[in-house]
């Protein structure tokens, strides 16, 4: 009961850059569920701390600039008291423009440094996989580790482009269009269940980017970018023949099934598509829509894939 309600606090992760470094390279490791959860939590906490620091620094920069700017006006009346004081508003006035340039450059550099050090879009990953690993934790073999490989880079990059095709539309003002299809494996991994079943999983982001050149009502040409993303989560499960027997009816429309000497091998997939499942949350101008799915919903839907595989077998009597 000692650790009941304990939380990982920020102090434990200040100055520990290892998680951050892993995030940038993408990571590939084997850990027990609790160690993975700790790792995810540490990554999120480190980013939060750095973001707080960044915001404070930017605030300070602009506070100093504002001080110079306001100071110019406040010190102006002093020139009426004595010409000696003229130096103050003049100096401050001369600093306003260079100060503005310096503040813009420093803000840009601070933001750039933060982006370089911390991967974006990790929070959803940490939440989803912490939940998933917690749910399967008790079904793993004692001290068994989960192998996990993750790629947290952007999907819309040249190396992820898989198809490029022309797009046409009947809408008024349409001039020409193009569709680019991207695919990135966000993560894949495997684990061994208590009953010796092997689970392999793969989580992918598929994004379609539509580029439309059209003429607006004013006659001016403009280019629009629209996105649609879907997230297939695939489970391959190898269930040992020495522990289970195959049920007489397996619905092969939903489940792909093969068998080898030792295992029944099932493959099931669940595509998370916000436009289909939750259209009011779909925004065509957002590249990614994965965060539209609640953590509970995501983890239960994935667990149901394993459940679907188990529904095809019965333990040997």
């Amino acid at each position: 009961m000692d650790r009941q309600g304990n939380e990982l606090n920020k102090e434990q992760y200040i100055g520990a850059p290892i998680e951050r470094a892993h995030l940038h390279r993408g990571f590939n490791s084997k850990k027990t569920p609790v160690k993975w959860i700790r790792f995810f939590r540490a990554c999120v906490v480190q980013r939060e701390i750095a973001e707080e620091k960044k915001k404070k620094k930017i605030k300070k920069i602009w506070f100093i600039f504002l001080g110079i700017f306001i100071g110019t006006f406040i010190t102006s009346p002093l020139t009426n008291i004595s010409p000696v004081f003229k130096i103050l508003p003049t100096t401050l006035g001369m600093l306003v423009f260079p100060g503005l340039i310096v503040a813009i450059i420093m803000t840009y550099r601070t933001n750039k440094k933060f982006k370089k050090n911390f991967a974006e879009g990790f929070d959803f990953f940490a939440d989803y996989f912490s939940a998933l690993f917690t749910l399967i934790e008790e079904d793993l073999q004692v001290e068994s580790k989960i192998a996990l490989e993750a790629n947290l880079k952007h999907t819309i990059t040249k190396e992820n482009l898989i198809k490029n095709e022309a797009y046409t539309s009947e809408t008024s003002g349409f001039i020409k269009g193009e569709e680019e299809h991207y695919e990135r494996v966000i993560s894949k991994g495997s684990c061994l269940f208590y009953d010796e079943s092997l689970i392999f999983f793969q989580f992918t982001e598929r994004t379609r980017k539509r580029i439309i050149l059209k003429r607006g009502s004013s006659g001016k040409r403009k280019t629009k970018y629209k996105y649609r993303a879907a997230y297939p989560f695939t489970i391959k499960m190898k269930i040992p023949k020495n522990k289970y027997q195959l049920n007489p009816s397996v619905d092969t429309k939903e489940i792909s099934f093969v068998e080898d000497d030792a295992y029944y091998v099932f493959k099931v997939s669940r595509k998370f598509d916000v436009k289909k499942e939750n259209p009011e949350q779909y925004n065509p101008y957002n590249e990614s829509s994965i965060t539209a799915f609640a953590v509970d919903y995501f983890s239960l839907e994935v667990i149901n894939l394993i459940n679907t595989c188990y529904s095809c077998v019965t333990p040997s009597a």
């Binding site: 650790r3 749910l135 509970d296 459940n307």
Partner: peptide
């Protein structure tokens, strides 16, 4: 469930609550 910290012993409370939900919402094996 959203209010439960997973990096703590309460993780098993979260799991038990989610298992109840899973059993209520899905035909399960």
């Amino acid at each position: 469930t959203n209010d439960i910290e997973l990096y703590s012993k309460d993780r098993s409370v979260w799991r038990r609550k989610m298992i109840h939900r899973f059993h209520a919402e899905y035909p399960y094996m």
